[in-house]
């Protein structure tokens, strides 16, 4: 069911700033792919390029053999590429169940139906509750989302993703701001997700990355500097340099004359 995602020389430049530069990587079906790198390495930008939130400056993105470089964000979500956001983006005034139901209605194709009450679509309700119980939020279905704790909101993010029947999910710093207990619970939640689902996770907490990912890519200053198994990456000299602050700060600011914007 799950399909292959491939980035070919993907770049995103803001004037002279190369937020993401010539990144090529492959996410195999069912992969557990970690994406790490210091602050400002371009991880979140890379995610937004994959999800279609912003356009690439160069390169192409292939999913399931199809070039989706020009596809809009909603179109990519329909194809099955979905993301969580670094800062949880939820429908705060609505109930937890309604948050998930919005995703479930879209994946069931009934989101534009006009006359029947939304509550009469039993398959949507069932799917929403199923996804909530997968992440352990079934008891909170009727709660207004704004009243959830930080950790619960992260769980809800995952439930929303699952309800959208994704093929590839992009988790952007899912455990940021979580307590150690919440982090541990979240890691086991992700470990328990269906095997055929491809997962790409950006994370600062390397323990989390190494316990989830079977393949790790390292970004620094917008470029891919290493890619391999957690073991290989852990011992890579470039990675250690990047994390220990060995990278030359001059690289951050391109000193060549700025192109006219």
């Amino acid at each position: 069911m799950s399909r292959r995602l491939e980035l070919r020389g993907v770049s995103r430049h803001f004037g002279a700033v190369k937020a993401v530069n010539d990144v090529s990587l492959v996410v195999e079906p069912g992969a557990r792919h970690g994406l790490i790198g210091p602050n400002g390495a371009g991880k979140s930008t890379l995610f937004s390029l994959i999800a279609g939130q912003q356009p690439v400056t160069a390169g192409s993105i292939i999913f399931d053999g199809r070039d989706i470089t020009k596809a809009s964000m909603p179109a990519r979500a329909k194809l099955g590429i979905q993301q969580t956001f670094q800062h949880a983006r939820l429908f705060l005034p609505q109930t937890v169940q309604e948050n998930v139901a919005l995703a479930a209605r879209r994946s069931k194709g009934v989101q534009g139906a006009l006359w029947r009450p939304a509550s009469s679509y039993k398959q949507v309700t069932a799917r929403a509750l199923e996804c909530l119980s997968l992440v352990g939020l079934e008891d909170r279905a009727g709660t207004v989302t704004g009243n959830l704790s930080h950790g619960e909101r992260r769980q809800l993010e995952v439930a929303i993703l699952l309800a959208g029947d994704p093929e590839v999910i992009l988790l952007d710093e899912p455990t940021a701001g979580m307590s150690p207990a919440e982090t541990a619970a979240f890691v086991s939640l992700v470990q328990g997700l269906p095997d055929d689902l491809s997962i790409v996770v950006v994370e600062h907490d390397l323990e989390v990355v190494f316990s989830i990912a079977s393949h790790v890519s390292v970004l620094n200053l917008g470029e891919l500097i290493a890619s391999g198994s957690p073991q290989q990456v852990r011992h890579d000299a470039l990675v250690q340099a990047a994390y220990l602050g060995g990278a030359d700060a001059q690289d951050v600011f391109d000193t060549s004359p700025r192109e006219s914007a």
Binding site: M73, R89, L90, F91, L92, P93, L102, R105, G164
Partner: peptide
């Protein structure tokens, strides 16, 4: 419900497809 989703968070709705 779709309209209210757009009202509360349009970007997220786009991310949902």
């Amino acid at each position: 419900h779709t309209l209210r989703g757009i009202r509360d968070n349009e970007t997220r709705m786009r991310a949902l497809g």
